[in-house]
Design a binder for these strands. Structure first.
Lengths: 119, 119
DNA sequence: TCGGCATATCGTCTGTCTACGATAGGCACG
DNA sequence: CGTGCCTATCGTAGACAGACGATATGCCGA
């Protein structure tokens, strides 16, 4: 049975509650902000990773296997892209039994928006 | 005489007048938008290129030599980064006699902001 | 027209990215 | 306690990125 026929699994993790986090106080300019902006945009700067982000935003959360099913890439490749996004702080992965449930980090996205807006 | 002592040259080019351009009608989602976002963020995703963009935004326009003076990189390296930004449509280079005057493309920045905001 | 300055391009080296298959490890179910 | 599924990691190969010096090009001024 091909994996494409697998059903979408229920997502168990939730994005970080943004109500606890006030506005980001870090500056949007200066050398540190430049490095941060470069690192974030570099992480986003690949079509597969953009697709993954969109998928997670649309579905709020998503099991790794579902992401693999949506992209025309090998499982190991998708896993590497997820790792890049996670190391950039843009997504989070919660272990859910035998699976891993990924979801976006809203405050990282807001930070990215703020940095891009400062350009 | 070290190049660091050169004076800043007057910029002759101006950013594209944004008043002529209405809101960008292209969609901010879908496969084409994903590719576009990936290409733009990839171009921004390097510290030197972020610095160049910031420099151009701050000064509105800037001669290539001044950019070289501001960055700890060789002239050929800076020229390559400028080329990346230009091919992504983020900046424009106007020939001003023997020099080249670079300035940002405001509509490209707005487009980038819109795409990032759609995440 | 010749010389010099500003910029772009070329050639090259090194390192990182991206892709894949193969393999390892962890958890649930029987 | 084994077996099977899901995911991460390893190893590898090819493509790409980033840096530099050297060189080409193009424009002014003498």
């Amino acid at each position: 049975m091909p994996s494409a026929l697998r059903s979408v699994r229920k997502a168990t993790c939730q994005p970080t509650d943004p109500s606890h986090a006030g506005p980001d106080l870090r500056p949007v300019e200066g050398p540190a902000a430049d490095e941060e902006l470069a690192a974030l945009t570099k992480a986003v700067g690949h079509p597969a990773r953009v697709q993954i982000l969109r998928l997670l935003v649309r579905r709020e959360a998503c099991v790794c296997g579902d992401i693999v099913d949506e992209l025309p890439l090998a499982q190991s490749t998708v896993s590497q892209h997820l790792k890049v996004l996670k190391e950039a702080g843009l997504i989070r992965g919660d272990i859910d039994g035998p699976r891993v449930c990924y979801c976006v980090e809203p405050h990282a996205l807001r930070r990215l928006r703020a940095l891009v807006a400062s350009l």
